[in-house]
Computed example of a mutant assay.
Amino acid sequence: MFWIIASTIVAFFMASLMIIVRLKASKRPASVKSIILPPLFMSTGAFMFVFPEFRVQWMQVLEALLIGVLFSFFLIKTSKFEIRRDKIYLIPSKAFALILVGLLIIRMVLKLIIGSTITLGETSGMFFLLAFGMLVSWRIAMLFKYKQLERQLKVPSSS
Score class of each variant (00 low, 15 high):
Met1Gly: 14
Phe2Gln: 07
Ile4Tyr: 14
Ile4Asp: 10
Ile5Leu: 11
Ile5Pro: 00
Ala6Tyr: 11
Ser7Leu: 10
Val10Phe: 15
Ser16Trp: 03
Leu17Asp: 04
Ile20Asp: 06
Leu23Ile: 03
Ala25Gln: 12
Ser31Ile: 05
Ser34Leu: 03
Pro39Thr: 08
Phe41Tyr: 13
Ser43Lys: 03
Ser43Tyr: 10
Ser43Gly: 10
Ser43Ala: 14
Ser43Phe: 11
Thr44Gly: 13
Gly45Tyr: 07
Phe47Lys: 11
Phe49Val: 03
Phe51Tyr: 13
Phe54Tyr: 15
Val56His: 03
Gln57Asp: 11
Trp58Pro: 01
Met59Ala: 10
Gly68Ala: 00
Phe71Tyr: 09
Phe73Ile: 05
Phe73Asn: 02
Phe73Arg: 04
Phe74Gln: 03
Ile76Lys: 15
Lys77His: 13
Lys77Gln: 14
Thr78Arg: 04
Lys80Thr: 13
Phe81His: 04
Phe81Leu: 09
Phe81Thr: 00
Arg84Ser: 09
Arg84His: 08
Ile88Thr: 04
Ile91Arg: 15
Ile91Asp: 04
Ser93Leu: 07
Ala97Gln: 04
Leu98Pro: 05
Ile99Glu: 11
Ile99Gln: 06
Leu103Ser: 06
Leu103Trp: 08
Leu104Ile: 02
Leu104Gly: 10
Ile105Glu: 02
Leu110Ala: 14
Ile114Phe: 05
Ser116Arg: 11
Thr117Gln: 14
Ile118Lys: 05
Ile118Val: 14
Thr119Glu: 03
Gly121His: 08
Gly121Ser: 05
Gly121Cys: 09
Glu122Ile: 04
Ser124Gln: 02
Gly125His: 07
Phe127Ser: 01
Phe128Gln: 10
Phe128Thr: 03
Leu130Pro: 00
Ile140Gln: 03
Gln152Glu: 14
Gln152Thr: 12
Leu153Tyr: 10
Lys154Ala: 13
Val155Glu: 15
Pro156Gln: 12
